[in-house]
Each structure stands twice: as structure tokens, then as C-alpha cells.
Simulated scan of single mutants.
Amino acid sequence: MKITDCTVRSYSAKHPTPIANGKYSYASTDIVFISINTDVGIEGHGWAHGTNVVVDTLLSLKDRIIGEDPFNVERIWEKMYLPKVYGRKGFETRAISAVDIALWDIKGKSSGRSVGQLLGGFRETVPAYIAGGYYEMGKDHTGLRKEMEANLASGAKAVKMKIGGASLEKDIERIEVVREVVGKEVKILVDANNAYNRIDALKMGRELDKRDIYWFEEPLSPDDIEGCAELCRKLDTPIAIGENEYTRWGFKQLMDAHAAHIYNADAQVLGGITEWKKVADLAMAYNVLVAPHGDQEIHAQLVRSIPNGLIVEYYDNNTNALKEAMFSSSMKLDGQGNVTPSQEPGFGVDLRFERMEQFKTYSSR
């Protein structure tokens, strides 16, 4: 089998109301897709969040992958990852990720197996948490309460909310509103998205210790490795980081420093499935857990495949403005807060490019 061609498409859909976390704000969902064709008629799809830099990098990578056997993912990855040209971190590495994801989709479709089976097939279902709790214009405690009530109605047994975009006192109030709604049996995860300095992170962490919070995500800058390690030593609440880290080498630095208890390794960011598996295996050697950041249609397959997979992030239409158009059917939570990854070959998702046409910003075909 050989790669014969590829198509790059990008899409952007505005949120009805811009959403914000502790440090960043988002007016739209922006996703870039690559569809890779082969000489046997099998087509694989990969995607990453981003805009023009991802598009430009994918177009420049095209000549590096055409003619290759898509099963040779290690060879292709090495051809793409050239630190002085592509990578070592940032949107160019996201482009490499999208290519690699598409290759694994081809591998699955060709072999008649899901990606989760190809990678290890450790379990059939995986726990999930609903990501949300964003700051929005006009969204008060009543709005937050309604959101969490809807999450419970969807079957959530774990929910995540944003902190760091308000004062410590106001964020504690928001956490207590969520706890009042979801009760003691539902897990609450909080995510600061790099908003705090070391002093404020420690203050908030000590408040979280009193409130049985499942994890404290990205309390500090992704480059403050020593600060995260210090929080791990001083707090009872587990520290989760890694959605902004790239490649096995970046994660090895974090793990060597004991900078977290849980690593949010995102295959759409760090270098694709091939690199994600290396990170997950490294985490197993360090006896730490992996709970990926990123789209559940990809990451549920990955968490399914490994013994040290903890939980998967679940996005609804409130956080992905393209989701309703992207897929013919959506993964749903069951009554126990779990998702069941598709058993269909590859990633088992049916992308609907024709329904996304109104959101298209670029196509190479």
C-alpha cells in the first residue's frame, strides 16, 4: 500500500457567546483536517485544532509522505519531525500529529481493527468527564448551575470547570455552587489553564484540599516545571499537566521532575498517536497516570488501549462549535459516566465534510 495524495481542509465556527478560561478566550472553534489517500482506495482522516500555521505545515509535509507505505508510521514520523524545520513544539507539531492520526486511521481500516485494539485493547469502556464551566459574558451562578444540571442529565459522573479567571474568593464560590449541584458522588476537576503564579496556585490548592477536588489542572505556566513539582509535594489534590507539552522528550522532562501525578497528553498536539504511545509507555514506567486532553473521538480509543489510562475528556457542543456538523453520530455517556469507543475499523467516526461546508475557510482540493 502506498500514499498517493492528501487533501487539507480548515474550518472555523463561531461560538454563540465567546468562552474564556483562566488565561485564554475563544470566539470560535478552528480545526484543520488532512485526508490521506492510498492506492488501494482506503482514506484516513486526521485533525488538529489550529488555523493557518497548521494548514501551511500540512501542505509543506505533503511531499514527504506521498509514496510511503502508511503502515510505516515510525519512518514517516522521522521524516516529518525535523527540529530546525518542523517542530520542536507548537502548531507545526500539531500538523505532524494530524498526519500521524490519519495514518493510524488507515492502519485500522486496512486491518479491520479499531485503533484502540491495534494499540493494546486493554478495556472496552472508559470513564469520562464533561469539560466545561467556562467564563462567559452574562453567565452567573445560575448559568453555571444550569450547565451542571444538564451535565448530570447527560449521565456525567465527573465534571470539569475553569478557575483562575476570577478572584480566589469568587472561584471558590463557583466551586461550591458546582458541588451543591452535583453532590458528593460526582467528581469535580478544576482547570486554571496556566493562570496562576506560584503563590496564588498554592493558596488555591490549599482551598481545593479542603473540598475533595479530583485534580488541579495546569495551575502554572507549562514551563514552570519546578513550580508544579513543588505543588505536588505540598498539596493533597493531584496535579494534572501536559496538554501544552510536546513529544516524548518534553514529557520525560516533566516526569523526571515529578511535576505531576496525572499527564494530560494530547495526541492532537504532542506529535500524533505514534508519539502518544511512547509517552503513555514512559508514564507507565514512572508509575503515573495518563488522562488525555483533546477530542474524545480520538482519545477514547487511546485510553481504552492502556492499563494506566485514567479518564477521557468529553466535549459537548458548547465547547466545540463544529461538533454537531462534524460527525454523523456522537459518542454519548452511559448511565455510569463512561463512553464506549467505536469498534469499527480505524477511529470509527463518520466525518461529514459536506455538512461543514458553511464553515470552510480553506481546501487544497
Score class of each variant (00 low, 15 high):
1 M>P: 11
4 T>A: 06
9 R>P: 03
16 P>K: 10
19 I>G: 05
34 I>K: 06
36 I>W: 08
38 T>D: 15
44 G>A: 00
51 T>M: 10
55 V>P: 08
56 D>E: 00
58 L>V: 01
63 D>E: 09
67 G>W: 08
73 V>P: 03
78 E>R: 11
80 M>Q: 13
80 M>E: 00
81 Y>N: 02
82 L>H: 10
94 R>E: 04
100 D>H: 05
108 G>V: 06
116 G>W: 05
117 Q>K: 09
119 L>A: 14
120 G>E: 12
121 G>P: 04
136 E>N: 04
152 L>G: 03
153 A>Q: 15
159 V>D: 00
162 K>D: 10
165 G>Q: 13
167 S>I: 07
170 K>P: 01
170 K>N: 15
183 G>T: 00
191 D>C: 09
193 N>E: 14
195 A>K: 04
204 M>W: 00
208 L>S: 04
219 P>V: 13
227 G>N: 09
233 R>P: 03
239 I>F: 09
241 I>E: 10
243 E>R: 00
249 W>G: 02
257 A>K: 01
258 H>R: 13
261 H>N: 15
265 A>M: 11
275 E>F: 02
277 K>T: 07
279 V>I: 05
279 V>N: 06
280 A>H: 14
291 A>F: 13
295 D>H: 11
302 L>E: 04
303 V>F: 10
309 G>A: 12
316 D>Q: 15
319 T>W: 14
335 G>D: 04
337 G>P: 11
351 L>Y: 02
352 R>V: 07
352 R>H: 03
356 M>V: 05
363 S>G: 07
365 R>C: 07
